[in-house]
């Protein structure tokens, strides 16, 4: 069986063909780099996405500070992660790279700040 995918690992968006036999990936073509190969294999077995959103800041220069997952999370866990993230508030000052939630939902990834807020 053949499946066509678009690699979303970078903005080039390479069109990829995956050859699947008995549920196993036997060939990946069309990718420009290694990441495309890894993406295609994961997409068939366990699709993951990186998550970006924001969390509320207390005493901040801004109302919220942007965050991202330190690694990709399973696609079907995105909304569960959102619920967790929306329940927390961080205190300014915040620096880029600060861990906001450690090991979210035991997925092995952290939620980290992607901008700074020196506070008021």
């Amino acid at each position: 069986m053949k499946k066509s995918l678009i690699c979303v690992s970078c903005p080039l968006g390479c069109p990829i063909e995956v050859e699947i036999e008995n549920g196993e990936v036997v060939a990946v073509t069309g990718n420009t780099c290694k990441r495309g190969d890894a993406y295609a294999r994961a997409e068939i077995t366990n699709p993951v996405r990186s998550l970006t959103t924001s969390v509320k800041v207390e005493n901040g220069m801004y109302a919220v500070v942007p965050v991202k997952s330190s690694g990709p999370v399973p696609k079907d866990k995105m909304f569960d992660c959102m619920k967790k993230i929306n329940a927390v508030t961080v205190k300014a000052p915040v620096k880029i790279g600060d861990v906001v939630i450690e090991n979210i939902l035991d997925l092995g990834v952290d939620i980290i700040a992607t901008n700074c807020d020196p506070g008021i």
């Binding site: 942007p66 880029i96 992607t114 700074c116």
Partner: peptide
């Protein structure tokens, strides 16, 4: 792969 604020940062 960075977010916008990280790239600007």
């Amino acid at each position: 792969e960075l977010s916008g604020p990280e790239y600007a940062g």
